[in-house]
Design a protein around this nucleic acid. Sequence first.
DNA 1: GTTTCATGCACTATTTAAAGTTACATGAAA
DNA 2: TTTCATGTAACTTTAAATAGTGCATGAAAC
Lengths: 154, 154
Amino acid sequence: MKRDSRLSGVLHVLLHMAEQGEPMTSDQLARAMQTHPVVIRRILGGLRDAGFVHSEKGHGGGWTIARDLSVITMRDVYDAIGRPGLMAMGNRTEAPGCLVEQAVNAALDSGFREAEALLLTRFGEVTLAALAADFHARMAARSLSPTTQEHIHG
Amino acid sequence: MKRDSRLSGVLHVLLHMAEQGEPMTSDQLARAMQTHPVVIRRILGGLRDAGFVHSEKGHGGGWTIARDLSVITMRDVYDAIGRPGLMAMGNRTEAPGCLVEQAVNAALDSGFREAEALLLTRFGEVTLAALAADFHARMAARSLSPTTQEHIHG
DNA sequence: GTTTCATGCACTATTTAAAGTTACATGAAA
DNA sequence: TTTCATGTAACTTTAAATAGTGCATGAAAC
């Protein structure tokens, strides 16, 4: 299958929304992300249901962030988009009858569970405010460098 | 993308080969794994190149384990099949120009790297001998139970 | 020596899930 | 009432693993 980039994408979108301050339309966000507006709506739908963003129809409508960035973690966002699988590898067969395969599955699962738990813990430690701060630090660093480019697309 | 089950599959195959003691053909192994013989050859090809298994053509040929199970770890097997990606999620864009996306990527990558490192460490701690021992324990447990079924397929 | 058995490998087809797209309904502001 | 924007269902495309076909190669049996 294709590699899942929804978490990466939605975090990107959220930070752009936060930078903007005023409502951004799915079209604007899609242009910035070089993707399709419907993809934006799909991915932000979960965040809306979770109460992290707000959407408004009609003139002047669009998407806005509904909570302070300091209270939203990457883990929250991961949960809101439906907790997609984290591991690219899995067992050939779940609940196999073969005892050999059961032994193999048990060993692999143990490792996978540990790795997933660690990853989710790390996600829970990073707020969107921290990501925004990192972005601003990068922007400051770039504006000091000789070849200043645009710091944000669109 | 589809979920990668090569590691699970090849470990299963290796343990069956070890139990058998004598050469097993790709056809026999494919039957046990409910897959295609060519898939077996493909997946065992990497292990042959790494020296973990030996293959022989013609009558009486097939696959045999070339080293003691106690010196082969799950990590070795993972390496031998080409170190497939472990994380199901990735960044939308590698090396993005957008500083927002750079900040997001950095945070995600950091978590992914930690989780991968932990997983590989765990893999390195489990030998095939340990897996075989676990299998034998499961077989003993089942033979004691009232409804004894076949402990091994094929 | 030739038939049979088995791996080696290149190439094609299928499958699965994400991502992209189209079409249209809904609702708000101009 | 027109325009703008989201909401959503349905369909198409794409990437990567797995499945399958066909044929070459080489070893043992007869």
